[in-house]
Design a protein around this nucleic acid. Structure first.
Length: 813
RNA sequence: GCCGAGGUGGCGGAAUUGGUAGACGCGGCGGACUCAAAAUCCGUUGUUAGCGAUAACGUGAGGGUUCGAGUCCCUCUCUCGGCACCA
């Protein structure tokens, strides 16, 4: 054993051993119970940064622990290699994106291996590989046939500078300049997320996720309960009735105007012979989502020449076009109830529209003046037949009065269907052929895949201008036709990769029977910045795969049983790492300077996985030092360890060890992984260090210590395991059995004595000493007698906690 | 505005979910070893008073429930993260 610990030599040696013994390969038919532990696959940006390090270190602790508990653990890895960022970067460097991806994945794979993660590299996937994306095309075709994808003009944010569709996120992040954005209506391929909205909502009750993420998902889906109501139009309107959705049908008699979105047929009809109105409508439609969306901004509108009749009160109210009406929510129209809605109140105040209270709160005077929108629920007043009813009562009454044609229960969704096409080269080609006679024809399955041509040209016209790719015969009529030259969003790639990991090598089937063995994923790890969009898409596609029969039966309704969203690693300055701030830290830096084990020990010990922490290089050094010292300690105690194998640990040492082990188990259960380092590893080390005279302690201590260390810093753990004479590999050793009450039971119990809730004394006694005797003993103690003497005891009690703690309290009158 | 997380020593952070607040680590102070330094080891370290046993105070602020509150309830405040005209 080398007297000095050299992480380089140790880590290389151990990695070679793992490779030689094929430690990370996972067999589908292994008899042990399965455990599928998945970390989000990275975008191959070039180098792993410390955020990746954190994600995979956390996942690896979990996976290794499950393995030691006797599970057959699948932990795969792949590359989210398609997408705009890769295309832009490759274009800038003047190389083919495939080449760029290849270099980067090679580099990142090497770094991941150097970090010693327990990844089955036989299952590696790459989204930009034909072997992967061909199946995505099959999925698309099947979805098209089932009308789960459709083609329709949709509003997009168009970046004039790069001539691509962009996202709100990119604008918010500053990647795209706001001045370059315009709102364009472009045809899009949309996946029917809304069709699955209720399932996506229901599924959330089945998963073990952080409450926040569940709330976010619910909010994103945004289902509200309400009614759709018909208001008859009077005069020369192009249609008979205006349909609106409302969650407050009880306020129907408070309607003093109606408002429609600028793109609503009524507004468009009115604008056709009114240039001023037309201008206003265009202006509304060009408002960027981040400029709208603020409830505090002034609402703007223009009156139309239409009037509707309130179906309950019979009153006539005007129809306006207003900029705060969202065109793709409900019917793109709303009933304006200024008394009971904040936005309507603002609008009505601005345009001097009447405000009528129809809901009374707290039995106050219904005629008092209205100074602000009263949005709480209450009882209808001033509402004719609805008077005296609450919301629920109003719903029933309206159904009864107006009948299903004019009033029906309905719900609203804020979830939009998912536009999946991008005007880019670097993505999965959409398998559609556009024929002037047949329309959009899906590529027949036997003609799949549609390969991305090898010659790369950047930009939205890349494929459209490609002579070989862009044209082909129509699969239906054989006439000369054009291919769809948009490619798919990378979110599609990452919406099913977890399923393909179960059968990455199948060249004849998208997903085979092995999926049944592995799915659903037992635990999913990733950054919470991906928490909302990606999770909805992946959950949706999972359900689609199930419904289309592309899954074997029994893969579950939800793809991810448990979820951990880890916080960010911030720069040393406490700010979000970014290139512009020049505060990014690459995994390579820490790997080169301190080694994988130190890197992992630091990143796990950093703090609660859920929270964000700034980088602190000093702390990294502390951990490096810890491993150095531990190595020395092992060296010193090696002979004792051998001797201690057959010896029994003294009871109190055993108890101390058991307490730490129990703590470790609890922290693993609660995902407080940072406590494994200080409360776990350090504590066992201290026990070993401070009990040099106990050979049994040396043996037991190191054995357990190395098992915990295997989760976090596996190389040094593996090396010491062997050097200290333990059998086999630590990675294949078994975790300790769960500790029982008996294991944590001490011979003597410390009883703390409290008087009026303040700790005044403590003494030791056998755990099961009779309660009256304990009370007596406590009262006799001078320190307690001092407080109690001469006073009356109102209450006293003995509480035994756990197995080694007791509490005696006296409450004085 | 809405949703969520949080505020504990000089610092990172513990606290078995209502029961000895500050585990463990870093840093500080004192000591041993050393010509000296580094490393290592031992002791000490919330604040105040006291040689001391001990006492008072102490988990963002204020109130409440309780024999007992970092933990539960109410009010306020500050920080961070996410979402935002969804009728």
């Amino acid at each position: 054993m080398d007297p000095k610990y050299g992480f380089n030599a140790v880590e290389r040696k151990i990695q070679q051993r793992w490779a030689k013994q094929d430690c990370f390969t996972v067999n589908d038919d292994d008899p042990r119970p399965k455990y599928y532990s998945l970390c989000m696959w990275p975008y191959p940006s070039g180098d792993l940064h410390v955020g990746h390090l954190r994600n995979y270190a956390i996942g690896d602790v979990w996976a290794r622990h499950k393995r030691m508990l006797g599970f057959n653990v699948l932990q795969p890895m792949g590359w989210d290699a398609f997408g705009k960022d890769a295309e832009l970067k490759a274009n800038k460097l003047g190389v083919h994106p495939a080449k760029w991806v290849k270099q980067n994945t090679a580099n990142m794979r090497r770094e991941l291996k150097e970090l010693g993660f327990m990844i089955d590299w036989n299952r590696e996937l790459n989204a930009s590989n034909l072997k992967y994306y061909r199946w995505e095309q099959l999925l698309f075709v099947r979805m098209w046939e089932q009308n789960l994808v459709y083609y329709e003009p949709t509003k997009v944010l168009w970046d004039k500078a790069t001539k691509t569709v962009t996202s709100r996120r990119d604008i918010d992040d500053g990647k795209v300049a706001k001045e370059d954005i315009e709102i364009k209506v472009m045809p899009a391929y949309l996946m029917r997320l809304r069709e699955y909205a209720n399932q996506l909502l229901d599924g959330l009750t089945q998963v073990n996720w952080p409450e926040k993420i569940i709330k976010d998902q619910q909010y994103l889906i945004g289902r509200s309960e309400g009614m759709t109501l018909h208001f008859a139009l009077v005069g020369n309107a192009p249609v008979d009735a205006l349909e609106v959705y409302t969650t407050r049908p009880d306020t129907i008699c408070g309607v003093t105007y109606m408002a429609v979105a600028a793109s609503h047929p009524l507004a468009q009809a009115a604008a056709s012979d009114n240039p001023k109105l037309a201008k206003f409508c265009t202006q509304c439609e060009q408002t960027l989502p981040m400029d709208a969306g603020n409830p505090h901004t002034e609402k703007q509108g223009m009156p139309l020449d239409f009037t509707v009749v309130n179906p309950v009160s019979g009153k006539h109210v005007p129809v306006w076009v207003a900029d705060y009406v969202v065109d793709d929510y409900g019917s793109g129209a709303l009933m304006g109830v200024p008394a009971h809605d904040e936005r309507d109140f603002k609008f009505a105040t601005r345009y001097q529209i009447p405000i009528i209270r129809v809901i009374n709160l707290d039995q106050q005077d219904p005629h008092r003046p209205i100074t602000q929108a009263e949005t709480s629920s209450g009882i209808a007043v001033n509402s004719g037949e609805l008077d005296g009813l609450d919301l629920k009562g109003c719903v029933s009454k309206l159904e009864e009065m107006l009948g299903p044609d004019k009033a029906r229960r309905d719900y609203g969704l804020s979830l939009r269907d998912w536009p999946i096409n991008r005007h880019m080269y670097w993505g999965t080609p959409i398998p559609i052929v556009i024929c002037s006679d047949c329309g959009r024809v899906p590529v027949p399955e036997h003609q799949l895949p549609v390969s991305l041509p090898n010659d790369f040209k950047h930009g939205p016209q890349a494929l459209a201008d490609h002579p070989d790719f862009a044209f082909c015969p129509c699969p239906r009529c054989g006439a000369k036709a054009r291919r769809e030259t948009d490619t798919m969003d990378t979110f599609v790639n990452s919406a099913w990769y977890f399923a393909r990991f179960t059968c990455p090598d199948n060249s004849t089937q998208m997903i085979d029977n092995r999926a049944k063995r592995w799915l659903p994923c037992d635990h999913y790890f990733g950054g919470d910045e991906h928490a909302q969009g990606h999770l909805v898409y992946a959950r949706f596609i999972h359900k689609v795969l199930r419904d289309l029969g592309l899954y074997p039966k029994g893969c579950g309704d939800e793809p991810f049983q448990a979820l951990l969203c880890q916080g960010m690693v911030l720069g040393a300055d406490g700010k979000k790492m970014s290139k512009s701030q020049d505060n990014t830290i690459m995994a390579k830096h820490i790997l080169d300077c301190y080694g994988a084990d130190t890197a992992r020990l630091y990143i796990i010990g950093m703090g609660n996985p859920k929270d964000a922490y700034p980088w602190n290089e000093e702390h990294v050094k502390d951990h490096a030092m810890f491993l150095q010292n531990l190595w020395q300690l092992a060296l010193k105690r090696r002979d004792q360890i051998a001797a201690g194998k057959e010896q029994k640990l003294a009871p109190e040492l055993q108890l101390n060890l058991n307490k730490i082990l129990n703590n470790i188990d609890r922290n693993l259960r609660d995902q407080h992984l940072n406590n494994l380092v200080f409360g776990g590893i350090h504590s066992i080390r201290n026990l070993i260090r401070d009990n040099a005279d106990s050979a049994a302690m040396q043996y037991q201590g190191f054995m357990h210590l190395l098992k915990v260390m295997n989760l976090i810093c596996p190389h040094i753990a593996e090396e010491l395991w062997q050097q200290l004479g333990f059998e086999g590999l630590v990675i294949d050793s078994a975790w300790w059995p769960a500790l029982t009450d008996a294991d944590l039971h001490s011979a003597t119990t410390v009883f703390v004595v409290q008087v009026n809730g303040k700790r005044r004394d403590q003494f030791e006694a056998p755990f099961d000493t009779d309660a009256t005797e304990l009370l007596e003993l406590a009262q006799q103690r001078p320190n307690i007698a001092r407080y109690i003497s001469g006073k009356q005891i109102a209450k006293s009690k003995v509480i035994r906690q756990g197995n080694s703690h007791g509490l005696i309290f006296f409450a004085l009158r």
